[in-house]
Design a protein around this nucleic acid. Sequence first.
DNA 1: CTCCCCGGGAAACATACGTTTGAAACGTAT
DNA 2: ATACGTTTCAAACGTATGTTTCCCGGGGAG
Lengths: 209, 209
Amino acid sequence: MANAATAERILDTAENLFARKGFSETSLRAITSKADVNLAAVNYHFGSKEALIQAVFERFLTPFCEALAQHLDELEEQGGEITLERLLSVVSVLAMGSHGTRPERATLFFRLSGLAYTQAQEHLRSYLREQYGGLFQRFLDLLGRAAPEVPPMEMFWRVHFALGATIFTLSGMGSLQAICAREFGEELTAADVNERLLAFTVGGLRGRD
Amino acid sequence: MANAATAERILDTAENLFARKGFSETSLRAITSKADVNLAAVNYHFGSKEALIQAVFERFLTPFCEALAQHLDELEEQGGEITLERLLSVVSVLAMGSHGTRPERATLFFRLSGLAYTQAQEHLRSYLREQYGGLFQRFLDLLGRAAPEVPPMEMFWRVHFALGATIFTLSGMGSLQAICAREFGEELTAADVNERLLAFTVGGLRGRD
DNA sequence: CTCCCCGGGAAACATACGTTTGAAACGTAT
DNA sequence: ATACGTTTCAAACGTATGTTTCCCGGGGAG
């Protein structure tokens, strides 16, 4: 591989533009010109625009999911009680902090996750399901075990409520932060928002009786 | 207006396709051919694709917001305490039931609401803000008054969490109901789901102390 | 040296898009 | 019956998209 930097530059630029404007609103020409590579480089290195989208997600999700699986292993091996708080905060901490020297990528991670749900890219969803669906199911099972007092069907619905709150909020994180700063004069970081979101979802999952 | 049905047919078809695939993924040609009208009819009746998108939302939101404003008036005139439950259930009932003889439009209503938030259509958001922002602000104020123990900024975030849970869930209501029936052998109606969602959001807004 | 293959680059390709045009068809009031 | 504003229609316009083609340069291997 003579110049490995080309594919990387494409991925870097693509994840930025995708997160900001969505998939169909981001053209390959916009990506390649901003990344300062030739237009044909995308199809040469990735094969197609769809494959590029998948590659962007793979670069994000594979390390993230490996780390998550490992943390879940550790939680189970420890043998102690696995609470809802611990389960959700593992994901939260990982999502916030698994971006090495570039913490600003957390925002991209959130926005891209939201896009995966809300944008019309069926190829992406089936790819993600096939690739990471097992881990998601495992996580759901642990949630159920962490709150045995909640009937399975109730938990099913509450998980989707919580998922909705999360995806929706995180995919609009940027503009919500801006509104918050303008309206209340307080600049919240993504971590601040996540803390509040965590309280909201934990309470919602557990229910109040 | 010789054939008022043309503009209506365009709106009917457009709201369906938009809700299913998003805005930029739905071409005017797809709309006009499915609606069985000439391609140029969109630009003739609405002026542009952007204006068509706004028209779709206006047809939904104007009756909805008028009804909501009226219900809020009544709540305030009654003088009794306005609780979170009553505020949210007013919106919920209205969103579920304000579609005349076509209850299936409730699903479209929610999906479109979600798209307004998640898709890259700045013109739409500023249009909605300008058109309906006042009512939304009034609703937020009532929420704040109904839960004075929650600081304004906290309420701001929790409202968006709840909004996310609602829009996300209801826009996928159909498939979620199917999964629920298959997985737990219990056929929940939309009202059943709404009841659970209401409990989830009320609890989340109020917080637990 | 020659061959070959890989990465890069400019240009062209075919297609799809939103929009505009100009004329035909229609309905209606004079 | 005529004239006029409104609506429909087929066709074309200009632009943008994803993808493909063809050619260049260079660096190992035989």
